[in-house]
């Protein structure tokens, strides 16, 4: 099985969702298809649980719904880009870039370091710009993989 953080199937450059629940569901379905999530509803409940603690919208049009869940098999990122924006509760407006980060419940630290590297990239202007401008899912997936390689 392919255990890369992200593949082109997990990139949606034209995400059309009315709200964050729909956006997360749409991206999560891709995780299920890719075999990274075993139980869609359970995963969505875990994401919603995390979202309830504090909204994950960040300044600059970014939403990073994420969770640790029993339903996740490997650390995975699904990425969606949304022209109109989806409200993730950030003070400065809706998110255009949505990063759905799925972490397995018992993941050991070595496993998780790839997600740590990803999170660090999220606050780099260069990273956001590349993801905003690219129009090829395969290129996006490859760029992200390269960026998070230790």
């Amino acid at each position: 099985m392919n255990n890369e953080l992200i593949t082109s199937d997990l990139v949606d450059l034209d995400l059309r969702s009315p709200d964050k629940q729909a956006a997360v569901r749409s991206l999560a379905e891709r995780l299920v298809t890719a075999g990274r999530v075993t139980d869609l509803e359970r995963f969505l409940t875990d994401v919603a649980e995390r979202e309830k603690q504090m909204s994950t919208g960040m300044q600059g049009g970014i939403g990073i719904p994420h969770c640790r869940s029993e339903a996740v098999t490997a650390p995975t990122l699904a990425f969606g880009r949304c022209q109109e924006g989806v409200d993730f509760g950030a003070e400065d407006g809706p998110a255009n870039l949505v990063f759905l980060i799925a972490a397995p419940q018992g993941g050991d630290s070595e496993h998780m370091s790839v997600l740590a590297a990803l999170a660090r990239r999220l606050v780099r202007a260069e990273f956001k710009r590349t993801l905003t401008e690219s129009d090829d899912p395969a290129a996006v997936a490859e760029y992200v993989r390269e960026e998070v390689t230790p």
Binding site: C67, R68, I101
Partner: peptide
């Protein structure tokens, strides 16, 4: 709380 994203950001 989850130690996945915000900690590193």
């Amino acid at each position: 709380p989850t130690g996945i994203a915000h900690t590193y950001m």
